[in-house]
Amino acid sequence: MKNLIQSIGRPFSSFILMLGETSMLLGKIILSIPYILKRPQLIIKELFFSGVLSIVIIAVSGWFVGMVLGLQGYNTLQRFGSVSVLGSLVALSLIRELGPVLSAILFASRAGSGITAEIGLMKATEQLDAMNVMSVDPIKRIIAPKFIGGVISVPILTMLFNTCGILGGKFVGVNLLGLDSGIFWSQMQDSVNFHADIVNSIIKALIFGIFVSLISVYQGLSSKPTAEGVSSSTTKTVVHSALAVLALDFILTAFMF
């Protein structure tokens, strides 16, 4: 009986512990911003690895998601005789939900896992200890730039995803299925609002970026310094990020729209 209650309590208490550690980490990262501002080159390097190298996967995924939306939307709307709103359907689903959510999840699996693995391996090969002994705080020098790079990258990638998705939807709707391109765009313009949709999309992406980046660096730092430990942390980064993004998306949508 005691064991049963313990086994219920353990995941809960370790979750609370994780929350505490993560927020302390976030605090430390925020405190190291002045250090980072003096070394912008560190962030540029991270932007390259987490942002530039994700361009292709984000653009291609966005394009295909847009095409699928166009195709499915067309088939469904046709039954109600309202294919003219296809543009709004594609644009609104992408900008409000799919863009930020899928970009954040793709970012977690493409760049977040890489961040975790890199930090985990630096820990396993004592590089972080070495930095500590040279009285350089690894949080400032390694963790904070990676975090900030991720936070900047996700909104940019989300905008890219939205754009490619809408172009993909337009390609299917207009070029393949023969909708009038004027109607496609004007329907979209009628229903998409700059403040309510696009600004909120950016805010969502920013919040997802903060969470995914924080999870990535936290998992890297708390990974066990073995091959097994690093691989399990990498998996955790992707799983926790996906769960966090989907749960947060629900909360944010409830507040925003």
Partner: peptide
């Protein structure tokens, strides 16, 4: 004031 050499060097890769 102190330097430390780690087991496998711990060079920044």
């Amino acid at each position: 004031k102190l330097g430390m050499l780690f087991q496998f060097g711990a060079l920044f890769t």
